[in-house]
């Protein structure tokens, strides 16, 4: 179960040439979307934040979603994570189709199958680090798996800080607590929304390193929205969004290739008539 998926194995997967993989993979994806559309506003003021996105997020993969501001990357993540409801299209998380689920079921799904790391304000200020980490399990009324808890806590290196409250920790430490919380319920998929957006480079490296390890050593699935080419270079696969569509994909990125691909996207992404 907890067999670490070695990084090299993931990396050795053949790179698909098509930007939007339509072929069904051997195993069911952790999350997938079909013809996902999200429209804000009405009539003239309409904004198509997502415009028919198809995506599969494979288990055991670390995926980054990148794109300029307003490209719809956060909206995509929110829809995939059952935080927001799409205008049309279908989202499946760990085999469960979200369409038509009531708030109660969505709440349960988020609690059981999804982990979150936000850019800021990840922790409940009145709870200690330990309590924050265990919050999803507490809310579900589940007993924590002590072995798994220890493994996660040791992986984020926070054991000495477990009794501290958020106000007594640095920003990096707080984000690592948030990562631990996202993982503790062994979710099918973890969504991270600019998790390093508020951090200095050292703290960013700590957090990204941990997310990487959680995929490699703890066999987790992580999806991260980011602006930062350095952050993106930690991942296995980058999806580039522009104007609500997936326009490109990059496998096994490094900083240079990310920058190069981003630069290439700039030109068509800003046509004169685009709003």
């Amino acid at each position: 179960m907890r067999t670490p998926a070695p990084r090299c194995q993931t990396r050795s997967m053949p790179e698909t040439s098509t930007p939007e993989p339509r072929t069904a993979p051997r195993t069911e994806p952790a999350a997938s979307a079909r013809a996902l559309t999200k429209v804000y506003g009405a009539d003239q003021a309409q904004v198509r934040a997502l415009d028919g996105v198809d995506v599969d997020l494979q288990r055991g993969e670390f995926t980054a979603i990148m794109g300029p501001s307003g490209s719809g990357k956060s909206t995509l993540m929110h829809c995939l994570a059952a935080l927001d409801t799409p205008t049309s299209g279908e989202v499946v998380v760990d085999g469960t189709a979200l369409g038509g689920l009531k708030d109660k079921d969505l709440t349960t799904l988020r609690r059981e199958k999804v982990g979150f790391v936000f850019q800021a304000f990840n922790l409940i200020p009145t709870l200690t680090a330990r309590e924050n980490i265990l919050l999803p399990l507490d809310l579900a009324g589940r007993k924590p798996d002590q072995e798994w808890f220890d493994e996660v806590v040791d992986a984020v290196g926070l054991r000495p800080r477990l009794g501290h409250r958020p106000s007594e920790m640095s920003g990096g430490q707080q984000q690592r607590v948030a990562c631990a919380r996202a993982l503790v319920s062994r979710p099918a998929i973890v969504f991270a929304d600019e998790p390093t957006g508020n951090l200095d480079s050292t703290s960013s490296a700590e957090v990204l390193g941990f997310l990487r390890r959680s995929v490699d050593e703890l066999a987790q699935t992580v999806v991260m929205v980011t602006h930062d080419p350095v952050a993106a270079s930690y991942t296995d696969r980058i999806l580039f969004l522009a104007d609500g569509r997936i326009v490109d994909e990059l496998r096994e990125p490094d900083r240079e290739s990310v920058l190069e691909r981003m630069g290439r996207l700039q030109t068509p992404a800003v046509p004169p008539q685009a709003g």
Binding site: L83, D103, K104, T107, T108, R110, R111, E112, F116, F118, F121, N122, L123, I124, P125, L135, P136, L139, A140, R181
Partner: peptide, 16 residues
């Protein structure tokens, strides 16, 4: 507001 949003995101149901 944000704290409540976070609690809802990590699985606090409306009745609770």
């Amino acid at each position: 507001t944000r704290e409540i949003g976070l609690l809802r995101a990590v699985g606090l149901s409306r009745p609770r």
